[in-house]
Protein backbone atom coordinates (compact mmCIF):
# COMPACT_ATOMS: atom_id res chain seq x y z
CA UNK A 1 0.00 0.00 0.00
CA UNK A 2 1.11 3.55 -0.65
CA UNK A 3 2.19 5.38 2.47
CA UNK A 4 1.23 8.76 1.16
CA UNK A 5 -0.76 9.82 -1.84
CA UNK A 6 -1.28 13.41 -2.90
CA UNK A 7 -3.73 13.81 -5.75
CA UNK A 8 -4.30 16.99 -7.74
CA UNK A 9 -3.30 19.34 -4.93
CA UNK A 10 -4.06 22.98 -5.71
CA UNK A 11 -3.16 25.91 -3.51
CA UNK A 12 -3.02 29.64 -3.98
CA UNK A 13 -2.33 32.54 -1.70
CA UNK A 14 -4.78 35.15 -2.90
CA UNK A 15 -3.99 35.76 -6.54
CA UNK A 16 -0.73 33.86 -6.39
CA UNK A 17 -1.15 30.30 -7.57
CA UNK A 18 1.54 28.29 -5.78
CA UNK A 19 0.64 24.62 -6.33
CA UNK A 20 -0.94 23.85 -9.66
CA UNK A 21 -2.32 20.33 -9.61
CA UNK A 22 0.41 18.33 -7.90
CA UNK A 23 0.18 14.57 -7.55
CA UNK A 24 2.77 12.34 -5.95
CA UNK A 25 3.00 9.21 -3.88
CA UNK A 26 5.48 7.72 -1.46
CA UNK A 27 6.02 4.02 -0.84
CA UNK A 28 6.99 2.45 2.44
CA UNK A 29 10.67 3.02 3.23
CA UNK A 30 11.17 5.19 0.16
CA UNK A 31 13.46 8.22 0.18
CA UNK A 32 12.24 11.04 -2.04
CA UNK A 33 14.02 14.33 -2.56
CA UNK A 34 12.26 17.43 -3.80
CA UNK A 35 14.45 19.99 -5.50
CA UNK A 36 13.65 23.17 -7.36
CA UNK A 37 14.20 26.90 -7.43
CA UNK A 38 13.24 29.22 -4.59
CA UNK A 39 9.55 30.04 -4.60
CA UNK A 40 8.57 27.01 -6.66
CA UNK A 41 6.23 25.80 -3.89
CA UNK A 42 8.28 23.06 -2.22
CA UNK A 43 7.60 24.22 1.32
CA UNK A 44 3.97 24.84 0.53
CA UNK A 45 3.69 21.28 -0.78
CA UNK A 46 5.15 19.86 2.45
CA UNK A 47 2.91 22.12 4.50
CA UNK A 48 -0.16 20.91 2.61
CA UNK A 49 0.94 17.28 3.00
CA UNK A 50 1.45 17.76 6.75
CA UNK A 51 -1.75 19.79 7.04
CA UNK A 52 -0.08 22.88 8.41
CA UNK A 53 -1.64 24.63 5.45
CA UNK A 54 -5.18 24.12 4.15
CA UNK A 55 -5.14 23.36 0.46
CA UNK A 56 -7.80 24.70 -1.91
CA UNK A 57 -8.47 21.42 -3.66
CA UNK A 58 -7.05 17.92 -3.89
CA UNK A 59 -6.65 14.72 -1.95
CA UNK A 60 -4.30 13.72 0.88
CA UNK A 61 -4.26 10.03 1.75
CA UNK A 62 -2.06 8.33 4.33
CA UNK A 63 -2.04 4.52 4.31
CA UNK A 64 -5.32 4.46 2.45
CA UNK A 65 -7.00 6.76 4.96
CA UNK A 66 -8.33 9.97 3.52
CA UNK A 67 -7.22 13.06 5.41
CA UNK A 68 -8.68 15.42 2.84
CA UNK A 69 -10.52 15.30 -0.44
CA UNK A 70 -12.30 17.64 -2.83
CA UNK A 71 -15.90 18.18 -1.82
CA UNK A 72 -18.87 18.66 -4.11
CA UNK A 73 -18.43 22.42 -4.16
CA UNK A 74 -14.88 21.94 -5.44
CA UNK A 75 -13.25 22.96 -2.16
CA UNK A 76 -11.06 20.73 -0.01
CA UNK A 77 -12.84 18.93 2.82
CA UNK A 78 -10.84 17.66 5.79
CA UNK A 79 -11.59 14.56 7.84
CA UNK A 80 -12.94 14.82 11.39
CA UNK A 81 -10.81 15.78 14.34
CA UNK A 82 -10.33 12.25 15.65
CA UNK A 83 -9.43 10.78 12.26
CA UNK A 84 -6.98 13.63 11.59
CA UNK A 85 -5.33 13.07 14.96
CA UNK A 86 -4.75 9.43 14.09
CA UNK A 87 -3.51 10.26 10.61
CA UNK A 88 -1.17 12.91 12.03
CA UNK A 89 0.53 10.28 14.16
CA UNK A 90 1.77 8.61 10.95
CA UNK A 91 4.14 11.40 9.98
CA UNK A 92 6.68 13.82 11.38
CA UNK A 93 8.23 17.03 10.09
CA UNK A 94 11.66 18.51 10.60
CA UNK A 95 11.67 22.28 10.15
CA UNK A 96 14.33 24.45 8.61
CA UNK A 97 14.67 26.46 11.83
CA UNK A 98 14.19 23.48 14.18
CA UNK A 99 11.35 24.93 16.28
CA UNK A 100 12.57 23.20 19.41
CA UNK A 101 10.77 24.16 22.62
CA UNK A 102 13.26 26.52 24.30
CA UNK A 103 11.89 25.98 27.80
CA UNK A 104 12.34 22.21 27.63
CA UNK A 105 15.61 20.38 28.04
CA UNK A 106 16.81 18.19 25.18
CA UNK A 107 15.42 15.12 26.92
CA UNK A 108 12.04 16.72 27.56
CA UNK A 109 11.83 18.00 23.99
CA UNK A 110 12.16 14.41 22.83
CA UNK A 111 10.10 12.60 25.45
CA UNK A 112 7.23 14.97 26.13
CA UNK A 113 5.07 14.12 23.12
CA UNK A 114 5.56 10.33 23.38
CA UNK A 115 4.60 10.60 27.06
CA UNK A 116 1.76 13.09 26.92
CA UNK A 117 0.42 12.73 23.40
CA UNK A 118 0.94 9.04 22.72
CA UNK A 119 0.76 8.25 26.46
CA UNK A 120 3.37 5.55 26.17
CA UNK A 121 5.19 3.89 29.01
CA UNK A 122 7.75 6.14 30.68
CA UNK A 123 10.58 3.65 30.86
CA UNK A 124 10.35 2.65 27.20
CA UNK A 125 10.12 6.27 26.09
CA UNK A 126 13.24 7.27 28.02
CA UNK A 127 15.17 4.21 26.86
CA UNK A 128 14.30 4.90 23.24
CA UNK A 129 15.11 8.60 23.66
CA UNK A 130 18.57 7.74 24.98
CA UNK A 131 19.13 5.40 22.03
CA UNK A 132 18.08 8.15 19.64
CA UNK A 133 20.39 10.66 21.29
CA UNK A 134 23.21 8.19 20.95
CA UNK A 135 22.42 7.73 17.28
CA UNK A 136 22.49 11.51 16.89
CA UNK A 137 25.84 11.73 18.72
CA UNK A 138 24.29 13.77 21.52
CA UNK A 139 24.37 11.40 24.46
CA UNK A 140 26.05 14.05 26.63
CA UNK A 141 23.42 16.72 25.87
CA UNK A 142 20.38 15.21 27.61
CA UNK A 143 20.09 17.98 30.15
CA UNK A 144 21.13 20.87 27.94
CA UNK A 145 18.65 23.53 26.81
CA UNK A 146 18.33 24.44 23.13
CA UNK A 147 20.08 27.82 23.56
CA UNK A 148 23.18 25.97 24.74
CA UNK A 149 23.43 23.98 21.50
CA UNK A 150 24.84 24.75 18.07
CA UNK A 151 22.46 24.87 15.11
CA UNK A 152 23.57 21.45 13.96
CA UNK A 153 22.98 19.99 17.40
CA UNK A 154 19.55 21.65 17.56
CA UNK A 155 18.61 20.13 14.23
CA UNK A 156 19.74 16.69 15.39
CA UNK A 157 17.59 17.07 18.53
CA UNK A 158 14.68 18.07 16.29
CA UNK A 159 15.22 14.93 14.23
CA UNK A 160 15.33 12.82 17.38
CA UNK A 161 12.16 14.52 18.60
CA UNK A 162 10.38 13.62 15.37
CA UNK A 163 11.67 10.03 15.39
CA UNK A 164 10.64 9.48 19.01
CA UNK A 165 7.01 9.34 17.89
CA UNK A 166 7.82 6.43 15.55
CA UNK A 167 6.43 7.99 12.38
CA UNK A 168 6.13 5.95 9.20
CA UNK A 169 7.10 8.94 7.11
CA UNK A 170 9.32 11.88 7.96
CA UNK A 171 9.31 15.16 6.05
CA UNK A 172 12.30 17.50 6.03
CA UNK A 173 12.03 21.09 4.83
CA UNK A 174 15.55 22.24 4.01
CA UNK A 175 16.95 20.75 7.20
CA UNK A 176 20.41 22.23 6.68
CA UNK A 177 19.83 25.61 5.08
CA UNK A 178 19.90 27.45 8.42
CA UNK A 179 23.30 25.91 9.16
CA UNK A 180 26.93 26.77 8.46
CA UNK A 181 28.59 24.49 5.92
CA UNK A 182 30.56 22.61 8.56
CA UNK A 183 27.38 21.91 10.56
CA UNK A 184 25.52 20.86 7.43
CA UNK A 185 27.69 17.80 7.07
CA UNK A 186 26.91 16.42 10.52
CA UNK A 187 23.15 16.76 9.98
CA UNK A 188 23.28 15.17 6.52
CA UNK A 189 25.27 12.31 7.98
CA UNK A 190 22.57 11.74 10.59
CA UNK A 191 19.80 11.81 7.97
CA UNK A 192 21.77 9.35 5.90
CA UNK A 193 22.03 7.02 8.87
CA UNK A 194 18.23 6.96 9.10
CA UNK A 195 17.98 5.20 5.75
CA UNK A 196 18.37 1.83 7.46
CA UNK A 197 15.49 2.55 9.87
CA UNK A 198 13.17 1.98 6.90
CA UNK A 199 11.22 5.11 7.57
CA UNK A 200 10.07 6.81 4.40
CA UNK A 201 11.61 10.25 4.01
CA UNK A 202 10.59 13.20 1.89
CA UNK A 203 13.36 15.76 1.84
CA UNK A 204 13.22 19.24 0.38
CA UNK A 205 16.82 20.26 -0.10
CA UNK A 206 19.27 22.42 -1.95
CA UNK A 207 22.07 19.91 -1.25
CA UNK A 208 22.21 18.33 -4.70
CA UNK A 209 25.04 15.90 -4.05
CA UNK A 210 23.21 14.65 -0.99
CA UNK A 211 19.90 14.32 -2.85
CA UNK A 212 21.56 12.43 -5.65
CA UNK A 213 23.30 10.12 -3.27
CA UNK A 214 20.57 9.27 -0.78
CA UNK A 215 17.34 9.33 -2.79
CA UNK A 216 15.45 6.52 -4.43
CA UNK A 217 13.58 9.14 -6.37
CA UNK A 218 14.06 12.82 -7.12
CA UNK A 219 11.28 15.26 -7.88
CA UNK A 220 12.08 18.50 -9.63
CA UNK A 221 9.52 21.24 -9.04
CA UNK A 222 9.26 24.61 -10.72
CA UNK A 223 6.49 27.21 -10.70
CA UNK A 224 4.09 25.02 -8.75
CA UNK A 225 4.27 21.95 -10.97
CA UNK A 226 6.33 18.78 -10.95
CA UNK A 227 8.50 19.17 -14.01
CA UNK A 228 10.19 15.86 -13.73
CA UNK A 229 10.58 12.91 -11.40
CA UNK A 230 12.50 9.68 -11.42
CA UNK A 231 15.63 7.90 -10.29
CA UNK A 232 18.38 10.36 -9.30
CA UNK A 233 20.69 9.34 -12.14
CA UNK A 234 17.91 10.01 -14.60
CA UNK A 235 16.83 13.42 -13.25
CA UNK A 236 20.37 14.66 -12.71
CA UNK A 237 21.31 13.81 -16.29
CA UNK A 238 17.98 14.91 -17.74
CA UNK A 239 17.87 16.69 -21.05
CA UNK A 240 14.79 18.65 -20.01
CA UNK A 241 15.64 22.28 -20.53
CA UNK A 242 14.28 23.58 -17.22
CA UNK A 243 15.86 20.84 -15.20
CA UNK A 244 19.17 21.45 -16.90
CA UNK A 245 19.11 25.18 -16.37
CA UNK A 246 18.31 24.68 -12.68
CA UNK A 247 20.93 22.01 -12.15
CA UNK A 248 23.42 24.00 -14.15
CA UNK A 249 23.71 26.36 -11.20
CA UNK A 250 24.96 23.48 -9.09
CA UNK A 251 27.08 22.17 -11.96
CA UNK A 252 30.44 21.78 -10.32
CA UNK A 253 29.07 19.92 -7.28
CA UNK A 254 27.78 17.02 -9.35
Amino acid sequence: MKLLELNHVVKSFGELSVLKDISLSVEEGEIVSIIGPSGSGKSTLLRCATMLETMDRGEVIYLGRKAAWTGENGRAVYAGKKELKEIRSQYGLVFQNFNLFPHYSVMKNITDAPLHVQKRDRETVFREARELLKKMGLEDKEDAYPYQLSGGQCQRVAIARALALNPKILFFDEPTSALDPELTGEVLKVIRSLADLHIAMVIVTHEMAFAKDISHRVIFMADGVIVEEGAPERVFSSDNERTQSFLGRYGTIL
Binding site: L52, S89, F95, N99, F101, A113, H116, V117, A162, L165
Partner: peptide, 13 residues
Protein backbone atom coordinates in the same frame (compact mmCIF):
# COMPACT_ATOMS: atom_id res chain seq x y z
CA UNK B 1 6.70 32.63 16.81
CA UNK B 2 4.21 30.61 14.78
CA UNK B 3 6.79 27.82 14.53
CA UNK B 4 6.11 26.87 18.15
CA UNK B 5 2.44 26.25 17.33
CA UNK B 6 3.34 24.36 14.17
CA UNK B 7 5.86 22.13 15.92
CA UNK B 8 3.28 21.37 18.60
CA UNK B 9 0.64 20.56 16.00
CA UNK B 10 2.96 18.22 14.11
CA UNK B 11 3.88 16.46 17.35
CA UNK B 12 0.19 15.87 18.00
CA UNK B 13 -0.41 18.17 20.96
Amino acid sequence: PVGQYEAAQILGY
